[in-house]
Nucleic acid binder design. Sequence first.
DNA 1: ACCCAGAAACCGACCGGTTGGTCTTATTAT
DNA 2: ATAATAAGACCAACCGGTCGGTTTCTGGGT
Lengths: 200, 200
Amino acid sequence: MKQEERSQETRSRILAAAEQSFAEHGYDVTSVDTICHAAGVSKGAFYHHFPSKGSVFVALLNAWLAELDRQFAAAQTGGESVPRQVAAMAAGVNEIYHVAGTKWNILLEFWAKSKADPEVARSTVEMIRRYQGFFQQLLDRGVSEGSLRVENSNLAATLVLSAVLGLLLQGILDPEGQDWGALMQRVLSMLMESMSGGKP
Amino acid sequence: MKQEERSQETRSRILAAAEQSFAEHGYDVTSVDTICHAAGVSKGAFYHHFPSKGSVFVALLNAWLAELDRQFAAAQTGGESVPRQVAAMAAGVNEIYHVAGTKWNILLEFWAKSKADPEVARSTVEMIRRYQGFFQQLLDRGVSEGSLRVENSNLAATLVLSAVLGLLLQGILDPEGQDWGALMQRVLSMLMESMSGGKP
DNA sequence: ACCCAGAAACCGACCGGTTGGTCTTATTAT
DNA sequence: ATAATAAGACCAACCGGTCGGTTTCTGGGT
């Protein structure tokens, strides 16, 4: 199986180069030639593996969605209390952020391209809704386990999700302005605290 | 002064057409010819008033910044209590949102283009920081007037700003999914309530 | 072991179309 | 008259995508 190996290799190199370039310079600015050059691959190879430039983009987006699901699944296995679990997630984001802050930039590309490509739009909307569902489920569990006190879990989940998205957005736009990873942790812990019953 | 009038007229028509098209289809997809056609203006006129396509974009961005300052100034003149003032602002956003939801789309374009254009980046960062400063100042006023109780106004302002940005983002990405204007009001009122001291 | 035929992977020159921007010419206001 | 404003034909550069051809792999016949 040497052929499939080689094939997968070039395919993943194209994807990696595209992700890098999309994140750093944006989708439209990045030409197919640029991707091919960065991946050390010819244009023929590119169009052998992908039918179009856009298909690479949606492949990347779907990979993100899959990764997201993996994260969700992993987060739900632990037996921690909800506030602790949220803190752990925030810490995870913080770590990833410090290792590869540029990684998040492509999110903005996904969002921006939503207006032009219906398929991208579907995926981004789905992404948001999954997050919303995840947080709501999480908060509900916190309520039922007694670690949280929330009147309207739907609204509260919206608040948490919005805060996270807003923080992410600011981190992408102004990476040097703040330690957004740390800020994410503090904001989330503040939110968790305010949702954990009255003030003793 | 008939000549300057005419000049301003075409200039503003170009700006309006560009804003519309940028918001609806995106910056890169919108060609100069498209803008000219939509504005009912020739390419010569376009390049008479603007040195480049990009300059129209930053002109639009600066107009947004100026409008933002106007809103801030207007918001600070009223003698309302801070929670009420926030509610009024949310109501204002809600109203604008229902009248012209598409209007906000261009924000995403501004953000997405930050990575490619340093000038755009400066402006968007400034935009965010002004918002942050505004909210922090607002919360501080709330504390000093006794209507709010906040431990760390900086962090709290970050939370409010993040929530607003996240809600805005979701509204742009999934306009049909929720009544984001109404949600903005509810989330902000929820935040204000949680910041208004203990629970009586 | 060797060969060969077909398939899969890859190459890069090339094409049609589009785009941002220029330039010459015409119109309008002063 | 003349300077500001507008018109639109035009251009060079680029870009996504195609296509004919080449290399590399694989599996079977001998």
